[in-house]
Amino acid sequence: MSHVLKNLTVKVWRQDGPTAKGNFETHVIDSITDEASFLEMLDVLNERLIADGKEAVVFDHDCREGICGTCSLMINGQAHGPQRATTTCQLHMRSFKSNDTIVIEPWRAGAFPIVKDLMVDRSAFDRIVESGGYITSPTGGAPDANLIPVPKPVADASMDSAACIGCGACVAACPNGAANLFVGAKIAHLNLLPQGQAERFKRAEAMVDTMDEHFGSCTNHGECSAACPKEISLDVIALMNKDYRSAKFKNRKELSRN
């Protein structure tokens, strides 16, 4: 059954552009149903701002189903807010109480410059994928899909990692602004599969090197996995490190002998 929340104080980060100085703006939401999603609460706030002749708060969002990875937001200091394994767009107001104060900030990380208000630029993730986060298989030349059986546990583990939505919460949660969970997830997805073996070490090397150009280094805090809405496991980082290390001394000519 639905309830109405009263008197919420919302402190939201406003910043005009990448180099502008930002500040918190405080608004009071008198009442809102707890069936509303967190972003619907921001919609309500934005409608009010427009009615008052002010600029709406800029924030990224799209699917509102927890799958596109577009939404972000630090909510009371937590990436994607208080609910475990839940993106901001899937968070509902039933996670809050009347009279709560809610502090909303953008992702804060060196590699994710602020664009405006709560919107950041996460294209460094794309640069990493462009450097090697794929299996080279030009259109047209693929063999029959059932030619290479993939053991179910392998397919499942690969899928667990492939579930990453590229939201960047792991980076935002990390005290060092490291992207190891994101990159590890992509490397594990592809490097676990038989189809990914030919480029396994090249991929690990290229992606990790590109990651290092943009992001901080991992010191094993584990905040990333705790913040990850898809519960990507820290194991992917171990797998990435292992393949990266091997990549440094593996004789690629003997790859198919493993």
């Binding site: 794929y134 299996i135 298989s137 259109t139 047209g140 030349g141 693929a142 063999p143 029959d144 899909a145 059932n146 290479i148 059986p149 993939v150 053991p151 179910k152 397919a155 499942d156 690969s158 899928m159 492939a162 997805h189 592809l190 599969l193 189809q195 990914g196």
Partner: peptide, 22 residues
């Protein structure tokens, strides 16, 4: 039919049976 071949080659982790087939 070509689509499935193409996507598997790219590493799409489709659901599998225990024998490893799709």
């Amino acid at each position: 039919v070509n689509i499935i071949d193409q996507m598997v080659a790219q590493g799409v982790p489709f659901a599998r049976e225990y024998g490893g087939l799709l």
